[in-house]
Design a protein around this nucleic acid. Structure first.
Lengths: 187, 187
DNA sequence: CTCGCGTTGTACCAATCGGTACAAGAAAAC
DNA sequence: GTTTTCTTGTACCGATTGGTACAACGCGAG
């Protein structure tokens, strides 16, 4: 057996950080190599498809995390819907570091990188909205209101991240989440 | 006198389109040259500071437009506040092509380009929020509620644009604006 | 030990990057 | 007409881009 390769999960986390910090185009192989401590040989060995495959794997990892920690709990029918939605907001606050971290999917969506990963990006948001709509219906809420509110909540989460980055004030994002919690508590 | 140069305003519009389509890093001089029909000599003659100056001038043009068409009307005390806020939403819907066009400031904010234009980006959103808060206070609304609602509205506008791009469905943005209109009509 | 295979760093590739230099061109001043 | 001054395209620069080739390395199998 050859010497053991790197921990794939940790590697993907480092790659995600580089893509978040510099975007897809700005994440040059030199920067990726420096951030991971791996030479180009190792990187192209782990990702024969080059940068495209790296980004795709990173997006898939993020998607998996949200699927497990957010979407699936939202779809679960054995917990109160209100608690599930509250847990989603808590999970978002934790994942996005209270506004100090951006959404890689959202950032890609606003750049021309979107076309390259259109399916992954739209699938992510579509499944998020569908799972959230299902939870809101179980609140209970009429189907059309649930669909509208889920769309609004996703907009506010993404918008809160944009505003927090724009104003360099992460608290913006937390305040937006708090407003969402208040709105759900007293409709 | 030498031959007259290009129309500076039209040139800035073309540059804005390139930056919107490809981001700051993705907007190569080759692409800019092709999009504007001007050689590098002409471009560096018009913008001695290179790409940085082009982007800065584009951001300034956008800022000027919003200052004149959105911020100033919001601050005006001779029109009903509700009408001013409604006009702002209409102006946004028009400017962002009903969700088919992204916010260049927001897109820059999510990339590492933000650090380069941090002052312009934060200034834009800060003045927008302040003008909107002032209008909401004249609705009338208590000062703290006005500040919170203006932050929320900006988040929703930006988030609506992100979601529209992500799902490749511009109507998302329009629906979010409509929900904002409804919320203002019946608080 | 020797062998073999998977992993690694590095040298190298053509293409493209942002930016500069500069000569040709073109209209106003005279 | 000539001169002047600004504009323009193009050739070119070193640096960097994503990607490939390949030889040196190191551990497990036998």
């Amino acid at each position: 057996m050859p010497p053991r390769a790197h921990d794939p999960a940790a590697l993907l986390m480092q790659l995600a950080a580089v893509f978040r910090d510099h975007g897809f185009e700005g994440a040059s192989m030199a920067r990726i190599s420096a951030a991971t401590g791996l030479g180009k040989g190792s990187l192209y060995n782990a990702f024969p498809g080059g940068k495209d495959e790296m980004a795709a794997k990173v997006l898939a990892m993020i998607d998996d995390w949200f699927e497990a920690e957010v979407f699936t709990p939202l779809r679960a029918t054995d917990t109160p819907a209100a608690a599930a939605v509250g847990a989603m907001l808590d999970a978002c606050q934790g994942y996005f570091w209270s506004g100090g971290r951006i959404c890689l999917l959202g950032a890609f969506a606003l750049s021309d990188t979107r076309d390259r990963f259109a399916a992954a990006i739209s699938g992510y948001f579509l499944r998020w909205q569908q799972a959230l709509t299902a939870a809101l219906i179980r609140l209970p809420l009429p189907e059309d209101q649930a669909a509208a509110l889920s769309e609004e909540m996703l907009s506010r989460i993404q918008g809160g991240l944009v505003l927090a980055r724009s104003l360099n004030d992460p608290a913006c994002f937390v305040r937006e989440l708090d407003r969402l919690r208040a709105r759900l508590a007293a409709p």
